[in-house]
Design a binder for these strands. Structure first.
Length: 422
DNA sequence: TCTGGGGTCCTAGGACCC
DNA sequence: TCTGGGGTCCTAGGACCC
């Protein structure tokens, strides 16, 4: 049996843990750059605030209902996520961290088999709340996809009180009939529209569809999903996270940038982040892509977007080297006269760094570069991010993002730790 | 005025090999 | 009139996830 443990309104709940005055009040958390609403407390959802709404469109509602607004605070959420995951590991080592706020558990072999899955799940839910302050919902079923369906009902139905177990054919049928196709894990907008057109509206109807028909229209991904709905587990628990195949970094700018130099400094910053991630997972990259674009929502501004990919001669994880390639690309795609709203960098073709094919006529002293990057990473680890950095990033952070409603880093910065008055 | 960021997997088609 | 068969690798684009 699989369980999926999903934190309720995770970012909003994290903010609440350290600020109990937010209890019962509508809370929303914004995306990078304070752009869109990406997390909502139950109260905010009840008011009718939709996921992904641009904050300026919701301004009236925010004012009217006195909604508390936060910029996103990823150091805080990441840390709270670790606490939740550690708590889950206290009942079983079989934990797959699926996202910042979700984990799959394999309940086989846990004490559950002695008691009921229901009791075990309820106990786990209580434990996570008590140890971390984060409320979670739990779905339990014979496959991951069915567990996800259970989880949705655990959240939706008050009488479920946060736990929904699909442990019999009749329970599964009931749950599937109550699940519209667009709410199935793996069914997005396109497939949902297609299924409705084909007369399939809920998960039970999809389960009854012919396998060959599903395969024909939804490829093997759909076929797997179909089997999972029928109780045949096709998606195993993945406990160790495989190395990334692609790493990217991009941002929208609070204020558009109009000079090559400013865009260069932003791009250098993205490459620096990518370099850190690459070295952390001990990979080198073979290709690098840079893209720039103007504000795609602006109706009057002249639009321009471009991207280019470069094959690097030798796989590398060296920040300065990647910056020079990124700048070369930027030279090719940058055009004067536009107000740039967003830029980004991606690297791919990742290979393990111990396994990099060298180049016969390589001009770079790789050993030196490796030692320099190691020293830089160590200093920054100790003294704070970007303390030692490439001059290409500039002195003043370019393309800075807006973060006007940031909560303190309660759990990751000594000077922002919570103060309690006695 | 104002609209996020970071990923994965699959398929079809082209280029190439013998 | 009529032009094989079997395969790999790469890329772009589409679909999905949180």
């Amino acid at each position: 049996m699989f369980a999926i443990v999903d934190c309720n309104n995770f970012y909003a709940s994290c903010e609440r843990v350290f600020n109990p005055t937010l209890e019962k009040r509508p809370v929303v958390v914004l995306s990078n750059n304070d752009g869109c609403i990406i997390a909502r407390s139950a109260e905010a959802k009840a008011i009718g605030i939709k996921m992904g709404t641009p904050v300026f469109e919701a301004r009236k509602m925010i004012k009217k209902h006195n909604i508390v607004v936060f910029s996103s605070n990823y150091p805080l959420y990441g840390d709270m996520s670790n606490r939740v995951m550690e708590t889950l590991r206290s009942i079983t080592p079989d934990v797959e961290v699926y996202s910042i706020d979700e984990a799959f558990l394999n309940l086989r072999g846990t004490k559950a088999m002695c008691g009921s899955l229901n009791t075990l799940s309820r106990d786990l839910r209580t434990k996570v709340k008590k140890w971390t302050g984060i409320p979670v919902s739990i779905g339990v079923a014979p496959t991951k996809t069915l567990a996800k369906i259970g989880n949705r009902l655990a959240k939706k139905r008050a009488e479920a009180a946060g736990v929904y177990v699909l442990n019999s054919e009749s329970a599964i049928r009931q749950a599937l009939e109550a699940t519209p196709v667009e709410d199935i894990w793996g069914i997005g907008r396109q497939y949902a529209a297609f299924l409705y057109q084909s007369g399939i509206e809920n998960a039970w109807q999809l389960r009854q569809a012919r396998e060959s028909w599903v395969k024909q229209h939804m490829s093997v991904v759909g076929q797997r999903l179909h089997m999972e709905l029928r109780g045949v587990s096709c998606l195993p628990l993945e406990m160790l996270d495989p190395p990334k195949k692609m790493i990217g970094s991009s941002r929208s700018f609070a204020k558009p940038l109009a000079t090559l130099n400013a865009v260069e400094e932003a791009v250098a910053t993205y490459v620096t982040r990518i370099g850190e991630k690459l070295r952390k997972q001990r990979s080198c990259a073979q290709v690098i892509t840079v893209f720039v674009r103007t504000n795609r929502f602006s109706k009057h501004a002249v639009q321009y977007a471009n991207a280019r990919t470069l094959q690097m001669p030798v796989p590398t994880d060296s920040t300065p080297e990647m910056i020079s390639y990124a700048f070369r690309i930027l030279q090719m795609i940058y055009r004067e006269g536009y107000a740039y709203k967003k830029a980004g960098v991606m690297v791919g073709g990742l290979v393990p760094s111990y396994d990099c094919q060298q180049h016969l006529f390589d001009q770079v002293d790789r050993k030196k570069a490796i030692r320099a990057m190691q020293a830089m990473d160590e200093i920054n680890e100790k003294m704070g991010r970007f303390k030692v950095r490439s001059a290409a990033m500039g002195f003043k952070a370019q393309g800075e993002t807006r973060q006007q409603k940031l909560s303190p880093n309660y759990t990751s910065n000594w000077s922002e730790i919570l103060e309690v008055q006695v």
